[in-house]
Design a protein around this nucleic acid. Structure first.
Lengths: 207, 207
DNA sequence: TGTACATCAGTGAACGCGCGTTCACTGATGTAC
DNA sequence: TGTACATCAGTGAACGCGCGTTCACTGATGTAC
């Protein structure tokens, strides 16, 4: 961990961290093995002691992205257990916020940069974990009469599609009209959510 | 147009076409200026007579993608003028089909490959044209009592988010569970649509 | 109709670059005795 | 405690590659007279 050491101690995680930082500061186009190694302060061939190739490193960086997303969604969902309607809108807003805060990470996770994701079990597991959180959320909303009855998994796909689509289109600047700030955004997101809920949902982002 | 000519005649369009073919056959990762030129049968510097740089060529290829998408959506929407419910589901399915038929084109259009899209007025115009078609569709559905009243532009954003999100997640293989064929897919899409419509919509893809 | 010439749309060599990956190596660490 | 040695996690030179872009050039075309 200390500087100046020949052996790094935790290079694997340092590389994942460095990758996320490069994404945040320079974008997806700059995510190369050599830059990641450089940012972690090691030679450009050092990563091969921990990852078989570039794809494996990208898989790890994406997995970390899903882990961070899960943390956010989980925290948001836990904080709103008492009120399913608020829980739904806040979790949706947390998803959107994650994408706005770390757009390049979001793109790596969802824009096919990782090619053979099925080959990386940890990636699959972490992405599934997020989906299961959503399914659980949907079940709670169903029990509260906020979402109509039916297969929760299937309903979760629909809810996710709505929120993900809104987020993706927004990131790609495909949504027409001017959006001044996040408050306005949360209203728009809310209006979309209200299309699929049986009762209106509170505008998120107050806390 | 004929082979063997020193002057190509319509190289600009040939390059756009070649670009789309490369996307179809080799994917986004293989879309380079040199490959596009090669496929069009000209030297790698010939494109510079027609495009200022690689981004401009990508802008043109993306614009062509939006034109093709528009053609599909327009044809589908025209063919179902009589029945707004069918029109909605068929247009949504046409959108999904476009993405499945030309996934790499879809990705170029929607995954931030083009960086300064505002700098390409034709791209912006063609993408707007698609959105306006959707707004018109929403208005028809509202008039038919299929969608609730309200600002059609805003409602269009929500509908688009739902369909786009479903499509994007599907392309990224993020939707859990096995989907055997397109028939099954159209049912899933339909169930998502039924969440936001006031009456159920027919399963698309029969014609 | 024939010729001179400007214009245009190509060619192909060359540039510098950053990339992923390999490989022989070496410095640091920990364990056996 | 001290030494020998295996193991591990790094280094840095080298590889070949494809890329975007520039530039001096040249072949083809069309127009003026």
């Amino acid at each position: 961990m200390e500087k100046g050491k020949y052996h790094h101690g935790d290079l694997k995680n340092a590389l994942i961290q460095a990758g996320s930082e490069i994404l945040a500061k320079e974008g997806v186009g700059s995510l190369s093995l050599r830059k990641v190694a450089g940012r972690a302060g090691v030679s450009h061939s050092a990563p091969y002691a921990h990852f078989t190739d570039k794809q494996a490193l990208i898989a790890a960086i994406s997995t970390e992205g899903f882990r961070l997303l899960y943390e956010r969604l989980q925290a948001t969902s836990d904080a709103n257990r008492a009120d399913p309607a608020r829980m739904l809108s806040e979790v949706a807003y947390a998803y959107l916020s994650f994408a706005l805060d770390a757009p390049a990470s979001f793109k790596v996770m969802f824009s096919g940069v990782l090619e053979q994701e099925k080959a990386y079990p940890e990636f699959v597991a972490m992405s599934k974990k997020n989906f299961l959180l959503l399914v659980e959320l949907v079940e709670l909303c169903q029990a509260a009469g906020l979402l109509k009855a039916g297969d929760p998994g299937q309903l979760a796909v629909s809810v996710w599609s709505l929120v993900h689509g809104f987020t993706a289109l927004l990131l790609e600047r495909q949504i027409p009209g001017t959006i001044r700030d996040r408050a306005e955004l949360s209203v728009l997101l809310c209006q979309a959510l209200n299309l699929i809920t049986l009762r209106d949902v509170p505008v998120p982002g107050k806390s």
